[in-house]
């Protein structure tokens, strides 16, 4: 595998340990939970007596989060090993091609969710010039979608670590 290396610097050894991989997966769950509860916080705050305005969190605010979670689910459900067309014996039936299409849909849903969060923030909170404590709900929406993206990045990286790890074991 040494001559297949693409980058000049090799990965540090601790990155390949099972410990680092497990920590990555736990961390991804933690980040996703953080995103979920940031959004829950905006919804709960919006219907609490603290919210004096008539701006409320409705289903529209949840929609970007739903899309980015869906994208995260799709991205991390795809088998990474099928992605490279030159992997032996799987390129025949066009699995790599299908995997790329599905992965593209997943990334599109994730990016669309993040863009949707920004859209909701701009159209619902910035343009009508909502005052500051109410503005927090829009900011939380953007933060939640960014955290979902971060979580899927962490999960993706730690799942790629797994391949290296199992390869080292099988040697």
């Amino acid at each position: 595998m040494e001559e297949d290396r693409l980058w000049k610097f090799r990965k540090p050894a601790w990155l390949n340990s099972a410990w680092a991989r497990n920590t990555g997966v736990y961390g991804a769950g933690a980040l996703f939970s953080l995103a979920f509860y940031v959004l829950i916080d905006s919804a709960v705050w919006s219907h609490s007596p603290l919210n004096g305005s008539d701006v409320h969190v409705t289903f529209v605010d949840w929609l970007p989060f739903i899309f980015s979670s869906l994208g995260m689910l799709i991205i991390n459900s795809v088998e990474k090993a099928r992605l490279s067309a030159d992997s032996f014996s799987y390129s025949g039936s066009g699995v790599a091609w299908k995997a790329r299409i599905v992965l593209f849909l997943g990334f599109a849903a994730l990016a669309g969710g993040m863009a949707g969060g920004v859209v909701v923030f701009v159209l619902k909170f910035v343009v009508p010039e909502v005052g500051w404590p109410m503005m927090g709900m829009g900011v939380e929406n953007v933060v939640a979608n960014a955290l979902v993206g971060l979580s899927s990045v962490v999960l993706w990286i730690s799942q790629n670590m797994e391949d290296e790890y199992s390869y080292n074991l099988s040697l």
Binding site: V25, Y26, A28, G29, A30, F32, S33, Y37, L155
Partner: peptide, 11 residues
Amino acid sequence: GRFCTGFMVVM
């Protein structure tokens, strides 16, 4: 399972 556990702990 690890993902769900991480989710619950932060929850």
